[in-house]
Design a protein around this nucleic acid. Structure first.
Lengths: 194, 194
DNA sequence: GAAGTCATGTAAAATGTTACATGATTCA
DNA sequence: TGAATCATGTAACATTTTACATGACTTC
């Protein structure tokens, strides 16, 4: 699913400007999708050209003119079709974080700790964001968004817990390497999870 | 981290051909990284051109000639540098699956079930793959790979559990919509997780 | 005999990221 | 006064995916 399709999908829910769509993606789509203005604006232009959305310019005083997009009948059909014709949607993680941790033995323990901390912070930030949504109007959400939000919560919580509980695997024992060689290797049992 | 860097990293562990690297990525990197031949071969060519790896052609009878790549001193340095200069590595999920589930109300319940089943199967497949690795030589693995493997296990297990436990959120009640309107709406409490 | 594995690559097409460019308003 | 928010876009660049092309050997 490319940015075009995602925009079309969001426009089935409500009319929006490119700016709005970006905000929405940074909101409830945050944990599994992202797109910059550089993809969104051209996507909307293409959708408009294809007749799948209509654009009306809204100008208010003392504000930049906004382009409000509304999905057309054909647009709605097109989106429904893309949904119908995809029975094995992808789910891809691309993680520099895990790639780096894979090579932890080549890294400075201080830096490893910094990276781990950074990851925990980001997970907390995203988890907090989801929690905010739940507070607001959770009960009135349709099943789809609720399922997706819950999924993000469950998976990120698991990631958070794992990192917090197993970080010592990566940073333990190495700190001692800075000492003038005591030749006293502390062997840890490699417990990873229960 | 692009394919080039990943290849360089893998080559710090052992010499390999492009084909080998692909297999390795399909193995322990499977759950957080992927690359096709179309990225790997050009990447290796560029690395060789930059003097970060060396290539020696190995020809055996009755087999295609293989190009075995070995990292150079400068290559090792370069990789260590990339590690050193990245203290906030990314971790991005791009999920068509969640995007589609977000719009579940627009979809046929049968298809939703099919998609959910497909997702569960894929998670199981990847989980099994990780389990195999653990069996083999788990205890002798360095901390890095062990951490990364454990992470994948924890997160994918959480995803699996969540989908299995909450799928009824998406497919329940809708089946009844096919019936000639009994006007008997079964209200479910929107429990998502404990 | 067909499918799958081993093995390498090229080239076009699709996609996305980043940097640039503009400009008013609001808040600290 | 400076930063953040609102608001839109272009263009160059980087990157990845996909399709194509080749060919021998092995296993069912």
């Amino acid at each position: 699913m490319d940015v075009k399709t995602i925009c079309l999908g969001l426009l089935t829910l409500d009319d929006a400007t490119g700016y709005d769509l970006k905000k929405q993606l940074e909101g409830s789509f945050n944990h599994f999708y992202s797109a910059g203005f550089g993809s969104i604006y051209p996507a909307l232009a293409q959708l408009a050209e294809a007749g799948l959305v209509e654009c009306s310019e809204v100008s208010e005083e003392g504000r930049p003119a906004r382009k409000l997009y509304r999905i057309t009948g054909r647009g709605r059909e097109a989106f429904l079709d893309t949904l119908k014709n995809n029975s094995s949607p992808g789910h891809k993680l691309r993680s520099e974080f895990l790639a780096m941790m894979y090579f932890a033995q080549l890294m400075d323990p201080g830096q490893i700790r910094a990276i781990l901390d950074h990851r925990l912070e980001e997970l907390d930030r995203k988890l907090d964001l989801l929690a905010e949504y739940e507070q607001s109007d959770w009960r009135h959400w349709p099943a789809g968004p609720r399922f997706v939000c819950g999924f993000g919560k469950a998976v990120m919580q698991a990631a958070r817990d794992y990192v917090a509980e197993n970080r010592q695997l990566l940073s333990d024992g190495k700190e001692l390497a800075k000492e003038p060689r005591g030749d006293k290797v502390v062997t840890r049992n490699g417990r990873v999870q229960a």
